[in-house]
Design a binder for these strands. Structure first.
Lengths: 158, 158
DNA sequence: ATATAAATGGAAATGGTTATCATTACTATT
DNA sequence: AATAGTAATGATAACCATTTCCATTTATAT
């Protein structure tokens, strides 16, 4: 009952996985495979359906459990776009870039990714994080920035 | 069956409410009263319990419905701190200030409000919003910034 | 090959939020 | 004041993403 899981590629995540005491299984491979290939903003069910179609032995529960681990380990980011289900993205793409910035349409829930203005953002965020860390004795490990509004279609339709 | 609802104060929200075609009711008054008095980060159930203790005629359903309206009208912000329940805050305090910035502890889910570094943030956000609006034809109406990490207690305990 | 603890999946439970619907209350108009 | 018309309400049930449970299977180190 194997599932042709993108053989031959460097399974870069195995190290981190084992390092944290987790086992490598076909299901987990398949889930990370889907995340690294597929479009962005996948929900747990999206991932389940994709994985399941190739490897029917994987259940929804395992998808949730694996995603939780991946988020804890830092390989995956979990987002809430306000439509009642969580979305998951690999934290780094193949080039090691780390762009997860979203414009969210409040009307149709469309999500647009952007990768502009990141440098200035990063600069400000760094400065802010340092200041906040010190003042509140808070060890900052991450942040979230999202913009809300109306996408082109919805703005015109109104 | 009245409920002593902070009489005599300027019910500034009535205007916006009526302007949008909504009616003023005792329950809605009570809900906004709770929001404007109480500590921050209240969940729908928190609000329900507080309102209900003073004015038992108000049900949980009405709390949810009223909050939805308040969010749509812009009087209230809805937040997700990752613990499975939404939190609500009046969008402006009594001085008309509009500070809704949070540090969220990933371990104990404690939320710290901060109001430092807001000026720089606002400046950057304005610049970024303008750029994004133009490039993506996206009408930006709001944004969200949150920092995640470990609060003092949890960082030490580890 | 074997032992051991971790991983799994299916079904059931959970829990915040929403939909339904018959009843009630607000508001403007007589 | 009485009425009509419409929005608001609350109790209950439905919803649905996510978790929990538990008996079985599997990965991994030895």
């Amino acid at each position: 009952m194997p599932g042709r899981l993108g053989r031959g590629r460097p399974f870069w995540w195995h190290g981190k996985f084992k390092g944290c005491g987790y086992k490598i299984t076909a299901g987990r491979d398949a889930i990370i495979e889907v995340l690294s290939k597929a479009d962005k903003h996948l929900s747990a069910e999206d991932i389940y359906l994709k994985v399941h179609s190739v490897y029917p032995g994987v259940g929804l529960t395992t998808v949730y459990r694996t995603l939780e681990i991946l988020v804890n380990v830092g390989l995956v980011y979990k987002f809430d776009f306000g439509d009642g289900r969580a979305r998951y993205e690999l934290s780094q793409d193949e080039e090691g870039e780390d762009h997860h910035h979203h414009l969210i349409c409040k009307k149709c829930n469309r999500v647009i990714d952007y990768s502009d203005f990141i440098e200035e953002e990063a600069e400000l965020l760094n400065k802010t994080e340092k200041g906040l860390s010190k003042k509140y004795n808070f060890e900052i490990t991450g942040h979230l920035i999202q913009f809300y509004g109306l996408c082109e279609k919805c703005a015109n339709r109104k």
